[in-house]
Design a protein around this nucleic acid. Sequence first.
DNA 1: GTCATTATAGAACGATCATACTAAAACGCA
DNA 2: TGCGTTTTAGTATGATCGTTCTATAATGAC
Lengths: 211, 211
Amino acid sequence: MARPREFDEDAVLDAAVACFWRHGFDATSIRDLVGQTGLTAASLYNAFGDKRSLFRLALERYIAGGIGPRLARYEAAPPLDGVRGYLDDVVARSLDDPANKGCMLVNAALEFAAQDAEFRPLIIGTFGRIEAFFLDCVRRGQGDGSMTRTLAAEDLALHCLAVLMGVRVLARIRPERAVLNGVVAALLAALVARPEEGRDGAADRSERGMT
Amino acid sequence: MARPREFDEDAVLDAAVACFWRHGFDATSIRDLVGQTGLTAASLYNAFGDKRSLFRLALERYIAGGIGPRLARYEAAPPLDGVRGYLDDVVARSLDDPANKGCMLVNAALEFAAQDAEFRPLIIGTFGRIEAFFLDCVRRGQGDGSMTRTLAAEDLALHCLAVLMGVRVLARIRPERAVLNGVVAALLAALVARPEEGRDGAADRSERGMT
DNA sequence: GTCATTATAGAACGATCATACTAAAACGCA
DNA sequence: TGCGTTTTAGTATGATCGTTCTATAATGAC
């Protein structure tokens, strides 16, 4: 009934992700987006709204295409393999990105931080999904004896999340395989059960007080 | 011989630090700086050069006033106390900052990342100083038996650095005491020597292979 | 007191920002 | 073949950006 779109929305959003991912929200201009997407400013505004809503769509697409699949890829793995796989994945992606863009979610979190009420729920919620993934790994790992029970599962999961964030920051400054692998190796060593811990599931849980 | 300055350079730089720390480089306008410092744009340019060199001075002042003293405060502490003190310090500062500005160095690192050749050396060098502090703590801790020798000191130091960065990011998103303390507690638990490790210095170093 | 020098104040600069407007163009349906 | 609707293309708009200019004010040296 009306004139049809001449562009592929997904391709345009991918181009927008590339722009925002590389330069952030503020430093990406509408002209940049016009140049990278190939369509005009009028079409951009007509199809996606203003710059903020386009950023939101781009960030959601980044999450749906990058973080979501990665979580799904390791959610059924053995606990230690899940954590290791997730972080090795991140390290590999960080190392083979010549632009060193890091993680768009971390970048957005620091650019908007607390002040932006519109993006906060999406950012916090996504980090919450990642934390939940780590928490699930740790709970299963503590249950099957592969991970240490000397700390609360919640603390260990937060530790994983913090190391993940740290890796994403460190990777932008020192994108060297030895550096990032060293960090991940130390995290995994911190998670594994110590030799003196029993390997028989929950049986020996009562032998230590709760701290 | 000429008209004297009417302002205190240090006070002006402190105001510039406050602006850049809170909003970053791009999102801070010269007009913001004019408003916060109280002097005119002409005086700003005359005294400090353009926006980039003012940012550099502000970042150097932040490092000299924030990070440097913190490193000095804990460099002579017992190894574990040094790491714990440094991170507890960071957590405390993060929690009592209502603006949640995080760390200006981390913010700058992510805003400029790899692309900016002018700020890279300062950013990388400062993180290098922090890493060297952690490495010194770990080496001493491994030497006196208080820290684990199951990993290379370099990897443990990098782990500390990554957790520090992660805490700085996490604190901007979830500035809750329990969250940040949990992360630090897990880091410290990862550093301490395990019960089966000898406490007699370097004596038992030969009993394990190098991995 | 005059001069050279530097600091101030405030307006002005061109560039670029996000966004809106005006027309023309391209379709489905009558 | 028109009509209604939406997408295009290009330009315009007002705001704000970093920076500079002009003029005036304040000092030490002579």
